[in-house]
Simulated assay, not measured.
Amino acid sequence: MSDVIADRSFWHRNQQTLAPWLFLTPAILFFVFYVIYPVFQSFNLSLYEWDGLGTKEYVGLRNYEDLYWEWVDRDAFYTSLKNNVIWLFLYLAAIPAGLFIALFLNQTVTGIRLYKSLFFFPFVISQVVVGLVFTWFYDPAFGFLNIFLGWFGAGPINMLGDERYVTYGVILAGLWPQTAYCMILYLTGLNAVDPEQIEAGRLDGAKGWRMLWHVVLPQLKPATFIAFVVTIIGALRSFDLISVMTSGGPFGSSRVLAYYMFEVALSEYGFRMGYGAAIAVVLFAIMMVFIAYFLFSMYREEKR
């Protein structure tokens, strides 16, 4: 009986400390087993040669050496890595675009609900649908892009069939829903902006860009951080649109690392699971460099 009373008293004494952990435990376990463990599993698999069915053969860093020589010889890995860099920098345009759309939608304008619905629409449809819509839009025979260019006497452009334009065409398709997502993040952040700071800024003579830069944007740092991280991850894991719109073509010119990883691990290149895992490790490393840099920048700003 005394043990039961002691147990109850321990729970009552530490209830506020233990209760959050009890709620967090299922999510933490899920994250460990389905995110953290597969990351280390990929590191381990990248050290083996394996076709997915037979016995694994330990090869050390040979898969990474193959990636290096492909990069030197400007082979498929070089093309995929170069396209991923292009995706990273151009995809970041979704952040300022989403911010300015959110600033517009945050105003009191006639028909604002209709505008919000139209801008929100790309976020709720799947990437496959987005890819199909833009494939029709770019069609050299009846696509609206070439019809529009024809009004100005410009010749038709085979956006998805020309090695010079295909990557930019797919990125433009991806920016459509990504901008909508960033817009939602910033709309949520704008609802939490302190009106007293806005009023104080007005009293100090801040207007327009000065108000935005010195008063509004500092309060949107959490939304900016989430938008940055999600956009970086979206650019690096770009697979759906490329699979639907180009299948990596023409002649492999629109490949990115995620699609190339799929090709070498599960497609025509002979089920090289270890080599695909090495590509995944490189992709993860690039992602962590960008996210770590942004985290460090935010920490430095907060410290100031």
Rank of each mutant, 00 (worst) to 15 (best):
V4E: 01
R8V: 00
S9C: 00
F10W: 03
N14S: 01
W21I: 04
T25F: 02
T25E: 01
P26Y: 01
L29H: 01
F30G: 10
I36H: 03
Y37M: 04
S42N: 14
N44Y: 12
S46H: 11
W50A: 11
L53D: 04
T55Q: 14
E57N: 14
W69M: 12
E70W: 09
R74Q: 14
D75I: 08
N83G: 05
I86Y: 12
I86S: 06
L90Y: 08
L92G: 06
A94N: 04
I95D: 02
G98N: 11
F100H: 10
A102L: 12
G111R: 03
I112W: 00
S117N: 14
V124W: 10
V124L: 13
V124C: 12
I125E: 05
V130N: 09
V130E: 05
L132H: 02
Y138R: 07
F142Q: 10
L145W: 12
I147P: 00
G150R: 13
P156K: 15
N158H: 09
D162F: 04
R164T: 14
Y165S: 15
Y165R: 09
V166W: 01
T167W: 00
T167K: 01
T167V: 15
A173E: 12
G174E: 07
L175M: 12
P177V: 08
P177N: 04
Q178R: 13
Y181S: 01
L185F: 07
L190R: 12
N191G: 10
D194E: 01
D194S: 06
E199S: 12
E199L: 11
G201I: 13
L203I: 15
M211E: 15
P218Q: 02
Q219M: 08
Q219R: 06
Q219L: 06
K221F: 01
T224G: 08
A227F: 01
F228S: 02
R237N: 13
R237A: 05
V244R: 04
G248S: 03
F251V: 13
M261Y: 09
V264E: 05
A265C: 09
L266C: 07
F271L: 07
M273T: 12
Y275A: 06
A277N: 12
A277G: 11
A280S: 15
F284C: 08
I291D: 08
F296V: 11
F296L: 13
S297G: 02
R300W: 01
K303C: 00
